[in-house]
């Protein structure tokens, strides 16, 4: 199996070096970038499999990078990596196309695991992100809805989100709900899709209260 081609985008050189050292054994780091413009160039020229994207950086932040390249490069997956933890920016980057969010104090093996997951098309939800998501879709506890309905989470998706927020790994979620890991991944991806596409009044309201749109 060929190793994944990864680009690291962050404005702190020290941090880039640290991440590179931590993941270099497991994946191939093809490029580093330090601001929006260089990140866009890297994605367009090298088409890496996964981009580790800082949320805050010169030129408009991760959101701006996604706005400029995501629609034209659907094969490149983005994983947000941040120290800020500000709900508005994290959800903003997810809504713009990132497939997951991890904090910068994540350990090396965990980061490699997250990169692999994102590259495979899955979503990476930390407990904190799951909490944000539940907050955003609040008040939608009702019985299971039609799957096409983007505006609310199904009961099952909510259950999965709550378990992730409670600190369960995907494997543990699967065991707890008597479903396969694949099914857990499907639910998480579906939540991600809803988060990105939903124009639900509450969600847009929640977002605009925090100025995400």
């Amino acid at each position: 199996m060929t190793s994944l081609r990864v680009a690291i985008v962050d404005d702190h050189a020290m941090f880039r070096t640290g991440v590179r050292a931590e993941i270099a054994d497991a994946v191939e780091v093809v490029a580093e970038a330090e601001d929006v413009d260089s990140a866009v160039t890297v994605v367009e020229d090298l088409a890496p499999d996964v981009v580790l994207l800082d949320v805050h950086m010169p030129g408009g932040g991760g959101l701006e990078v996604l706005r400029r390249v995501y629609p034209r490069h659907p094969d490149t997956k983005f994983l947000a990596l941040s120290v800020s933890d500000a709900a508005e920016d994290v959800i903003g980057v997810i809504r713009a196309g990132a497939r997951g969010y991890v904090t910068k104090n994540i350990s090396g093996p965990e980061l490699v695991d997250a990169i692999t997951r994102v590259a495979a098309g899955d979503a990476v939800f930390s407990p904190r992100l799951a909490g944000f998501v539940l907050d955003a879709f609040a008040g939608t506890i009702e019985v299971a809805q039609v799957d096409e309905d983007l505006d609310r989470l199904t009961e099952r998706e909510r259950e999965v989100m709550r378990l992730i927020a409670r600190g369960y790994a995907y494997k543990e979620v699967a065991k707890e709900l008597f479903i396969s890991i694949k099914t857990v991944e499907t639910h998480v991806s579906s939540v991600l899709r809803k988060l990105q596409l939903s124009s639900r009044h509450e969600l847009t309201r929640w977002a605009s209260d925090r100025r995400l749109i």
């Binding site: 805050h56 800020s84 903003g92 605009s208 749109i213």
Partner: peptide, 18 residues
């Protein structure tokens, strides 16, 4: 905004709402 976000906005580290 909180001080950190305000400073990040001023230095162009994040995209402003549009």
């Amino acid at each position: 905004l909180s001080p950190g976000l305000e400073s990040a906005t001023r230095r162009g580290l994040r995209t402003r709402g549009r």
